[in-house]
Deep mutational scan, measured.
Amino acid sequence: KELVLVLYDYQEKSPRELTVKKGDILTLLNSTNKDWWKIEVNGRQGFVPAAYLKKL
């Protein structure tokens, strides 16, 4: 499993997105899109802007 660090808080703006908090370490599911990465948070899957995340 690949992990990502959340660099900035992000509030979901659609049902396909997820809310994340700065400092969270989460599972990366897909990073093929350069702008939006798919991650998992508490069993939910969704997208967060790639600029808000850093691969560990």
Rank of each mutant, 00 (worst) to 15 (best):
K1R: 11
E2K: 08
L3H: 13
L3K: 10
L3C: 09
V4L: 04
V4I: 06
V4S: 01
V4D: 00
L5T: 05
L5Q: 07
L5H: 04
L5E: 09
V6Y: 00
V6Q: 01
L7I: 09
Y8F: 15
D9W: 03
D9N: 10
D9M: 02
D9H: 05
D9A: 05
Y10P: 01
Q11C: 10
Q11N: 14
E12M: 12
E12K: 13
K13P: 07
S14L: 07
S14Q: 09
S14I: 05
S14N: 13
P15T: 10
P15Y: 09
P15I: 09
P15D: 15
R16H: 15
R16Y: 14
E17C: 06
E17F: 06
L18K: 04
L18D: 01
T19K: 07
T19G: 06
T19N: 08
V20G: 00
V20R: 00
V20F: 04
K22E: 09
K22C: 07
G23M: 03
G23R: 02
D24N: 07
D24S: 10
D24K: 04
I25C: 05
I25M: 05
I25Y: 05
L26A: 15
L26C: 12
T27M: 13
L28D: 00
L29K: 04
L29V: 14
N30D: 15
N30L: 08
S31N: 09
S31L: 04
S31A: 14
S31F: 06
S31P: 05
T32Y: 11
T32S: 14
N33Q: 10
N33T: 07
K34M: 11
K34I: 11
K34C: 09
K34P: 13
D35E: 13
D35I: 12
W36F: 11
W36G: 03
W36H: 05
W37H: 02
W37R: 01
K38Y: 15
K38H: 15
K38S: 09
I39E: 00
I39D: 00
E40I: 06
E40K: 05
E40D: 06
V41W: 11
V41M: 13
N42R: 09
G43S: 08
G43M: 06
R44W: 06
R44E: 12
R44Q: 13
R44Y: 08
R44K: 13
Q45H: 11
Q45C: 10
G46F: 08
G46D: 02
G46E: 03
F47Y: 15
F47T: 03
F47R: 03
V48K: 00
V48Q: 00
V48S: 01
P49G: 02
P49D: 03
P49T: 01
A51F: 12
Y52E: 01
Y52W: 07
L53W: 01
L53D: 00
K54R: 11
K54I: 12
K54H: 11
K55E: 07
K55V: 12
K55F: 07
L56Y: 09
L56W: 08
L56Q: 05
